[in-house]
Amino acid sequence: MHGEYKVPGGKLVVVDLDVDVDVESGTVGAAGTTGGVLRNVRVAGDFFLEPDEAILAINRALEGAPADTDAAGLAARVEAALPEGTVMFGLTADGIAIAVRRALAHATDWTDYDWQLIHEAPQPPALHMALDEVITAEVAAGRRPPTLRVWEWGAPAVVIGSFQSLRNEIDPEGADRHGIEVVRRISGGGAMFIEPGNTITYSLSVPTALVQGLSFADSYAYLDDWVLGALGDMGVKAWYQPLNDIATDAGKIAGAAQKRMVSDSGGAVLHHVTMAYDIDADKMMEVLRIGKEKLSDKGTKSAKKRVDPLRRQTGLAREAVIERMIESFRGRYGLEKGSVSEDEMGRARELVEGKFGRGEWTGRVP
């Protein structure tokens, strides 16, 4: 079995191993074994590790471990076995453990797929919500390749999370005054303030196999890693901030959310991210109700200080930032230009009529 995991902000960890199956049970489960143990464990990668013999200690620590040991248990084995004074660069015990779990889960890698790009004309906010659901369902069913969709917004909006209270999050008078449409997405998380020229939004619709062996929290960092690299190439030192933020020294620049879909073909994950290219903070504060409790865990007294736009940090036009992000993804994993099919668009419009454009959905949590 073979598993790979790039430690966010670090290096690639590769694990090859065999599993000795319990003779009595005789079975190996899809996400590991119920009775086997790890054998012939070999950890490799482009990380740095001192002293040299530490790699042998890591392999020995994992040898014979029950194959159903969780990531925390595997990481503990590694930590306990490291020689005194061991220094790891671009490598962590947790990262090694995740690579092992991905090997046992038969996880796929980014480069195993032919990625498709959708970057089309501006669409209404409610239609974007519907397109996310339709495209991810198509990936889940195996009828569409993994897809990176870069959004263009046809109107200003606030997008609230699936479980947020409409009245607690939105000032209706402020929204009406500024012509802001309020829509609810299918994923959890917080509200996003959208202005077409000031926002960069993208969705990844990926097979569940790509995040197999990762915890829910780890999958956020894993799916955000490429954009951290793209930002770094533009001179922005950014990092993943659990659970779902991308941040810099100057403040938050993006927020992510996920929704998982199950199908007979294995399912898919929707991972979408909204980035602040620029922002009218005064207008945002008139539309969103951001409570003191939410600000308290961000170490700031003002929502204005929470977001630091990419325009200032990059000095680039919004279109240039998007193009560099796309090219960074293409350089890493390959990316072919695609489009929304007529059938997908038709189904999305039906969802707008029956769900995303209706008050019953937007106000499902009053």
Rank of each mutant, 00 (worst) to 15 (best):
L127C: 11
M129T: 08
L131T: 10
D132P: 00
V134D: 11
I135S: 01
I135V: 15
A137K: 14
E138H: 11
V139P: 06
A140N: 09
A140C: 06
A140P: 02
R144F: 06
L148T: 09
R149Y: 12
W151I: 15
G154L: 03
V159H: 03
G161D: 05
S162A: 15
Q164P: 12
S165L: 02
E169C: 05
I170W: 00
P172C: 03
P172G: 03
E173H: 07
E173V: 09
G174K: 02
G174I: 03
D176G: 12
R177Q: 14
R177Y: 11
G179H: 10
E181N: 03
V182T: 14
V183M: 12
V183K: 08
I186F: 07
S187Q: 14
A191P: 05
M192L: 13
E195R: 15
P196W: 00
T199Q: 04
T201H: 11
Y202F: 15
Y202D: 06
P207E: 03
P207W: 04
T208Y: 05
G213H: 07
L214E: 06
S215C: 01
A217N: 13
D218Y: 04
D218K: 12
S219M: 07
Y220N: 13
Y220E: 01
D224A: 15
V227G: 00
V227T: 07
L228S: 08
G235Y: 03
V236G: 09
V236I: 07
Q241P: 00
